[in-house]
Each structure stands twice: as C-alpha cells, then as structure tokens.
Nucleic acid binder design. Structure first.
Length: 291
DNA sequence: CCACGATCCTGCTAGC
DNA sequence: TGCTAGCAGGATCGTG
C-alpha cells in the first residue's frame, strides 16, 4: 500500500518523466468516487492548455502545480497508481483519469478499489486549507523527542493508531507504523500517554530513519512480494521485519510474530520484544501539567 | 475535544 | 475445477 516513501518515489519518477508539454485532453469515468469536488468534465475546462510546473508530495498526497497557480491533487489510497504512457501503449483497465499531453504522452491515474482521490484547487490558498485541515507535520521531517511526546503523549489512544492518524503526523500508514514500533520495542496497543520519554526519544529517531531507508530502496512495492522473497535475504536487508509476517520468527529474538487488530487494522508485533508493560509504568500524563 | 466503530470498494486468497 | 465468503485498509463520518 502506498505510504510516504512510495508516494515520494512516485513524485520523483514523475519529475524525471519531465511532463512539461501542455495538457490537450482530460478523460475519465464520470460517476466515480475518486473525483472529489470535481469531475472529468470540469477538470477538462480547468486543465486543458495548462502545463505542469512542479510535482511535490505532502503526506501521502501528490501535488501537481500548474502554470496558472492552480493545483491538481491526487491521493493513491490503497491501490492507486500513476503511469506515464506513450501514445502507442494501451491503458490498463482500472484507469480513472487520463491527462493527455501535447507531446503524445499521457498520465494515467489507475485505481481498482476506488479508494484514491483526485481534487482540483484553483487557488493555492484553498489547497493549503484543504491540506492543513487533514495533515499534521510531515513524518519524513526530523522531529525531536519532545515534539513527538507533545504530539502523542497526552492521548489515550493506542500508539499505533496515533502513528497512522494523518492529522497528527502525515505519511505513516499501517505498514510503517508496525515497522517503527517493532524497531523500538513498543507494543502497538500502548496508550500514547503510557509511552515513556525514552521510548518517545527512540521513536523520534526511528520514524524518519525507517521512512528514509525505505525511500532509498525505492519504497515497498508489494508486501506480498517481499514476504515471498525474504528467505533469500539476510535479516538486516529485509525491507519488512514484522509487517505481514505472522507466525514467522522475529528477526531479533526468534519468537513467532503475532497479529492483533486495532480499530480494524491488522497489527503485527513480536510478543517478546514488544511486551504490553504500560500498566506498571506509573501514572499517565494528563496533558494539563506538562513542563 | 477525544475516541472509536462503521463505511466505502473490489482483487485476491483460503477453503470447501 | 469452480464457487463463495472473508480479508485487506486510508480517509471520512456519525455516535457516545
């Protein structure tokens, strides 16, 4: 599933494609959940004649800045993908939006499960408001232990759910949340206000490091592929240490990886390395008397 | 304000 | 071999 590293890799690949020619056509399926506050028809009016000036990422959103100050925003959801196609290649069957360029190429947004999103903003101020309402600070940016604790440390929700809450920290999804918690030995169900200061310090270091490492590998294209291939890799070179590895040995201690469900999300952890020990760690932080 | 479950959607897999 | 039930989860919305 696309999380921050995968979306960043997509942005880099699209930048390398140098899609600078004017948009000459916009096609898509009209009744489609993917389009939010816009449709292929209105998008055609807004996009035809425009050029892409910059491609960037915020959280798991891709931003296409156009030459008139407007922005096309895309979220890949669960199964969304972007592909630059030359005029002769056939589009795949789940394409929801196609932008055609004057140089004969086109950009396809494909999404079988329709969890993705396409949103258009005429003005940067409206785009920024939309993103500000949804996204906290970017998870790739360095964060101090103090800042992370201020963000999570007063909340009672399980730390795993805090990590994937985009309003708090933008970019982490189910996979990297489990990987980060395993790396610093925190049980995923630990309430945010029961995570210790030293654990927050470890987590603050681990989050950007894990995302950066995945980014440098080109992202995690398919959890299933990596699980199938892991036997041929030394443990420290495996992209996934716990995610999806239920029943397989923990790379650190050999205990079979366990799976639990938190708010409907499958959560993988090592029952030995990540013990649920928060009830014996003293009083919870209340958030009223922080210093 | 905070927490949490339900909902959307369809390809894939396990099980019969 | 072919069918079906259930799983997968990011974001949003409604309820307590």
């Amino acid at each position: 599933m696309p999380e921050l590293p995968e979306v960043e890799v997509t942005a880099e690949n699209l930048r390398r494609a140098e899609l600078r020619a004017p948009i000459v056509a916009v096609d898509g399926q009209l009744p489609c959940r993917v389009f939010y506050a816009c449709s292929p028809r209105t998008l055609a009016d807004d996009l035809i004649g425009r050029c892409i000036r910059a491609i960037s990422r915020r959280g798991k959103y891709l931003l296409f800045d156009l030459d008139d100050g407007s922005t096309l925003l895309m979220h890949r959801g669960m199964t969304g993908s972007l592909r630059v196609r030359d005029g002769t290649a056939a589009p795949d069957r789940y394409v929801r939006l196609t932008l055609s360029f004057a140089d004969g190429r086109s950009l396809d947004f494909s999404d079988p499960r329709l969890f993705g999103r396409v949103v258009f903003f005429r003005r940067a101020i409206d785009r920024d408001r939309y993103l500000a309402e949804r996204l906290g600070r970017d998870a790739l940016a360095p964060i101090s232990a103090t800042e992370l604790r201020a963000l999570f440390g007063t909340r009672r929700r399980p730390i795993k759910l805090l990590l994937i809450d985009q309003h708090l920290l933008a970019g982490i999804g189910n996979l990297y949340a489990d990987e980060a918690l395993w790396s610093v030995r925190i049980h995923p169900a630990t309430p945010g206000n029961r995570v210790s200061d030293s654990q927050y310090a470890a987590l603050a270091t681990a989050i950007p490091a894990i995302l950066q490492a995945s980014l440098q590998r080109g992202g995690t294209t398919s959890a299933r592929e990596h699980l199938a291939a892991e036997a041929s890799l030394p443990p420290d070179q495996r992209p996934l240490q716990v995610y999806g590895r239920v029943g397989r040995p923990c790379p650190r201690c050999g205990t079979p990886i366990a799976r639990t469900v938190l708010s409907g999300r499958g959560s993988y952890f090592c029952p030995t390395c990540q013990q649920p020990c928060w009830s014996s760690e003293g009083p919870p932080r209340t958030g009223h008397a922080e210093g």
